[in-house]
Every structure is written in C-alpha cells, then in structure tokens.
Design a protein around this nucleic acid. Sequence first.
DNA 1: TCTGGGGTCCTAGGACCC
DNA 2: TCTGGGGTCCTAGGACCC
Length: 323
Amino acid sequence: LKLCPELIVVSGSHHHYGRVSKQVMERLHDLTPLVEQISIDEAFLDITDLPGDVTRIARGLQTRIRDELDLPSSIGVASNKLVAKIANEVGKKGGRSGQPPFAITVVPAGDEAEFLASLPAEMLWGVGPKTSARLAGLGIHTIGDIARWPEGELVRLFGENGREMAMHARGQDRRPVVTEREIKSISQEITYARDTRDDASIEKTLRKLSAQVGRRLRNKDLAGTTVKLKIRWPDFTTLTRQVTLPHPTDNDLEITEAALKLLHKVRVPKQAVRLIGVGVSRLGPPVRQLELWEHGTEKARRLQAVMDELREKYGEAVIRKGK
DNA sequence: TCTGGGGTCCTAGGACCC
DNA sequence: TCTGGGGTCCTAGGACCC
C-alpha cells in the first residue's frame, strides 16, 4: 500500500461521453497504468509516483482531453479515492451552471477532514437515502457531525458501515486503486411497460433473459453455479429466489430451466408481474472437458456454440428452436 | 420522483459438519 | 446422550453505487 497516494477522478457527463469513453480511458492509460474505471465516464488514477506538480499533471490531462477529443472534464485530486471523488463533485458544482465543467480541485494531504467537515453527510460513500435519514434523526447533517460522534456509537448503530463512516468522515480511506476487478455476477432484467399476468409471455420473457445471460457468460468465457430469479409485483415488493446447481453452467437451457423452476415456486398462474430478471453468480471458468459418459453435455455445448456463431453472423431472428 | 438496469457488499438465519 | 462452539455453505433481503 502506498502511504499517501495522490489520485485523480476524471469525470465528464454521460451526455458528452458514451462512445468516446474508450478514447478517454486510453489517454488516462498514457499517463499511468494505475487506472481504475468506475463507470463509463469516471476513473481513479494513482499518480503517486508521477514526477511533477499534481495540478500541472491534472491540467495537462484535461487539456489533452479537450484538444484531442473535444470533451470537457473535471478532476479532483487528493490523497485517497474518497476525498478525490468528493473534491471533484464539489469542484464540478462550483462551476458556472450551464457551462461544461473544467474544474480541477486539489485537497492537499492533511486538509482532508477540514475539507469534508461542512459538506452534507450523504456525500460520503455508502450514505444513501436510508442512512442519511437515520443520521438526520440523530441530529447528524454534515460529514463533520459524523466525525464528532464516537466511533463506538456509530458501530453500535450502523454495524460495519458505521466503522467505515467514522473513518471516511475523518477523510481516511485506505482502499487502493484497483486496476482489474473480477466480475461476480451477470444478470438481465426487464420492467414491463404494463403489469403482465399472461403466463406464456412471462415464461417467454424469462427464456429470453436466460438466453441473454447465457450468451454474455459465454462471451466472457465464464460459467456460473447459482441461478437467481428476481421478480417484482405491481405493489413494488421485490423478491429473489436462487438455486445452486450441481455444476457451473453457461448453457441457455440450463439457466432457463432453473429460472422457470424458481418462477413456479413463487408465482401462481395469472399473478401480475411488474419486473422479472435472471442472474447467474459464483462465476468461474467453464468446465468443458469432453467426458465420454457425458456425451449429452458436450453435444449441448457444441450446439450452443454453433447457434451463437450463426446469431452473431445473421442476427437474432435467424434461429428458432424446432419443436 | 409511483420508481430503469446492472452491479457490489453486508447481514442474518438455517443446515450441516467436526 | 447432551451441550456447545466454530466454520462453511446456502438462501433471502436490503442498502447502495453509477
């Protein structure tokens, strides 16, 4: 762990970014390989070991993104990810409204707690609507208010999250910049434009979602052991049901069948549905050695591969399962 | 915000094993 | 036979993030 990394958050807006995201990220990688992309238009850079003044580095990067890609960006610099991210938000907000952001906001090491103190509590990572409502009930409104509370009390009230909050409120954050992260789950879900109670169309949707999940697994060369069904009723209550398979799968039919079983466990026929989703987790490499006594499995896999290829070439509609 | 989609992490209880 | 502790796996739900 670096003692005092200096980090940049680069951030634009979805409106401007999107397809050019990749080009931006390439510019970041030109600066340092220590890039952690956290969304389409945001990344952390660890520039601890770069020579030169941080403001100048930030300005140079911003200029390059503007000149070469014609994009606005804003940058926060601090000794850790939490403070850099918040610094960037603060800097962006301070700009003239209606103008694209070109802010560069630097929080010098040692000034973190003071910088955060007057900001609203919900600007902290991990403080969302629920937690900030509970905090308000305790008379806690700013990050400084959190910092003044005894850590033990916060832990008692909020569990591990309370410990994090106490640390973060003091401007402390030890999370390193992570350049590559393992993917943990793949899912697809859809909200119906109108609540649906038609059994056949719900099952059809489920098959489609399962197939999409399966395809994404295969594209990433992954297979998963747990299949999860997510379903939301018209009153917005949402529930999940999951099952662990005897072996990892990336096969559309296996995923579909597991999902259908789960569906029948929680839903009675004609019951109205708002949302339905399928996910696969506990991911790992697909096991696909050809075992003689598992002829069926290997056959299914090869059929699937051929279908993927044809779909890739000729589009979604080209293949239907025969009956 | 009468509420989209795809993720991550945490908690908690039960089953099971040693 | 009974009690207890600890670890692991599994399931379900919830908060939060972009």
